[in-house]
């Protein structure tokens, strides 16, 4: 799979993108708001700009170090595509869960999410899947709603359990 060098370059790319965003925002949004110049009272750009420059310098250093290391490209521990797939699917399921949480509410969204992750983990026993996902979702809701007075997302249908 990905070599440690590729991963390192992706991370450097990410940090580079972050500093690009900082400078772009300072040049556009900050200037529009009038907070890109002046003294410490009005200039909100000085500090993020300084850190972005510092990150930029470090990125150059790191790039130099990477280019030295480049010759000895070491492979990270070989990971099968299926192993990556499971993690990817878990993240995808979780992302979908967060997307639908506001709409359909905690009580309708949670058990299917847990069920799906357990399925991805390899559990195929349907009764076990159903019981444990409902049990986990409900028992956690009970602790937070009944003891800690947290109002979990109700969704557009206002689904809740009056404990």
């Amino acid at each position: 799979m990905a070599s440690s060098r590729t991963l390192n370059l992706i991370a450097l790319g990410f940090l580079f993108a972050v500093i690009v965003i900082v400078f772009w925002q300072i040049e556009t949004d900050f200037k529009e708001q009038g907070i890109a110049s002046g003294g410490p009272y009005d200039d909100a750009s000085l500090y993020p700009r300084a850190i972005a420059i510092f990150i930029g310098v470090l990125l150059v250093f790191q790039l130099v170090i990477e280019s030295f290391r480049g010759r000895t490209t070491t492979l990270t521990e070989v990971i099968q595509a299926s192993d990556f797939g499971r993690a990817g699917m878990m993240l995808a399921v979780f992302a979908v869960y967060l997307m639908v949480l506001t709409t359909i509410g905690y009580h309708l969204a949670t058990a299917p999410m847990i069920c799906a992750i357990m399925w991805i983990c390899g559990m195929r026993n349907l009764p076990k899947l159903a019981i444990s996902s409902v049990a986990i979702a409900t028992s956690f809701a009970f602790v937070f709603e009944a003891f800690l007075n947290v109002v979990l997302p109700l969704g557009i249908w206002n689904v809740f359990i009056p404990w």
Binding site: H107, V134, W157, N158, V159, F160, I161, P162
Partner: peptide
């Protein structure tokens, strides 16, 4: 499960 679901919706 359905029964539990029904209680929830009823309470709603």
């Amino acid at each position: 499960t359905l029964l539990a679901g029904a209680i929830v919706v009823a309470s709603a």
